[in-house]
Write a protein that binds this DNA or RNA. Structure first.
Lengths: 235, 235
DNA sequence: TCGTTAATGTGTTTAAATTACACAATTTGG
DNA sequence: CCAAATTGTGTAATTTAAACACATTAACGA
């Protein structure tokens, strides 16, 4: 490691005092299942919060970029490599971790639940409906809310929800995702109009299977067409 | 300090390896002067970047919240206590600081230039036009751009620009601030209409002084009236 | 096989928001 | 008293968003 003694000019504390802070990354991994927005959580096993739900996180390694650390967590927990990930906020209250000073940078991620292989039940790793969570370990509920809010803002003018769906999806499924994220109902005709106008969807000329009603057409997202800037997608 | 040995369960590295990361805070302190958006900078004096412009930052102290650290920097550098401050993003590339591993959380701040007492010329502390900056020390240019972009988004639906102005201001001054931040021209009549509609401004029944033309009325911002959510203020 | 059920697919009308735009009035300064 | 510069003001045109209904399709069960 490079010499670090040069930090002393920052203040009157000695170098080693500044290296008593640990840095972690916490990931809010969103999925969509059974018409609900869900988040991947485990049961906390540190004594102060035993049994409470906890986000997936880890300390950042000394030779690891912040983004790399969150990709690593995603990969370790879901087996997925190519995921949507966005940094949200860093939480640095002195007392936020009972074991010492840990500052955490939070990310949210959007994955397709059906692509995820949960590493079997380790600490009861599972998908939990976001709207059913009213308590978590540490400040993780605050983090979850911050990430959910950021997601809400994001989907309004960026085509990111496709990351929550399989490659082929119907317009109903797409609309359900928006409704789950925003916790609101949308007008079907206006919704369709908006997406066709954006020209992001490729008609696959296939129909849904195994639905107990008239099947809808299937589409895929064409990322190459993300050129025009949408206004108010999510309304 | 509380025991920290419990961190070991996070991975195979020993505890002390995780405490080789330092955490800093960097503040992008925006001001408005001579019709331009400016930022408070100093000349960097570490050898790798000597002479380049640098943002104001410091290492976070072990017993200090992140937000507290940025308020401290603001207070130390500008003498101001009650400022607008917003966290933007955390930059954690392994090699971003030549002296070792330093992860930095960035904030932007909005202050009234005329309220600031610059601690006389320490390291050439000065206000610099944002649009004239094309090179900075470290990754500070990236940070500046990220904060400027966040400010642009913010002003579109939040009444924060008042923090850049004196208590009493004319509508022209207010519009100039928006134009400086967004680097665009706005229609005067539509701009006025929008702000009167919002009902945020209190007519002080006073006129500008010492302008070489017809003086405009002076207003102040009434924070109590920030109830209705604006749509597209900045257009 | 036929009715019931549940969802798909499709346009138009209305309201709201945004944009474009011009001229008289006021003050300063020469 | 004239020129220069800027304030103050309203309406029409355009664009965007919101509200809304009915015929069609496939599955299911009687």
């Amino acid at each position: 490691m490079k010499q670090i003694s040069r930090f002393s000019h920052f203040g009157e504390l000695s170098d080693k005092d500044y290296f008593r802070i640990a840095l972690s990354v916490d990931c809010v991994i969103f999925g969509f299942e059974d018409g609900e927005l869900k988040v991947l959580v485990i049961n906390c096993n540190i004594k102060e919060y035993r049994g409470k739900l906890s986000l997936l996180g880890d300390l950042v390694r000394p030779d690891e970029d912040l983004d790399s650390a969150s990709y690593r967590i995603l990969r370790e927990r879901t087996g997925l490599g190519d995921v949507y990930l966005e940094q949200v906020q860093t939480f640095g209250a002195v007392d936020r971790h009972p074991a010492g000073r840990v500052i955490t940078t939070t990310y949210f991620s959007l994955v397709n639940v059906r692509d995820v292989q949960l590493t079997l039940a380790e600490n009861d790793l599972h998908w939990h409906p976001v709207n059913d969570i009213h308590d978590m370990a540490f400040d993780h509920l605050t983090i979850l809310h911050a990430c959910h809010e950021r997601l809400r803002e994001k989907v309004d003018d960026h085509p990111v929800v496709f990351n929550l769906l399989p490659k082929k999806f119907s317009l109903r499924e797409l609309q359900c995702v928006y409704e789950a994220i925003l916790n609101t109902r949308l007008d079907r005709r206006n919704f369709r109009k908006k997406f066709f106008m954006m020209d992001w969807l490729v008609d696959l000329d296939e129909l849904e299977q195994d639905v107990p009603h008239r099947p809808g057409k299937l589409y895929r997202f064409n990322a190459a067409k993300f050129t025009r800037k949408p206004k108010a997608l999510a309304r």
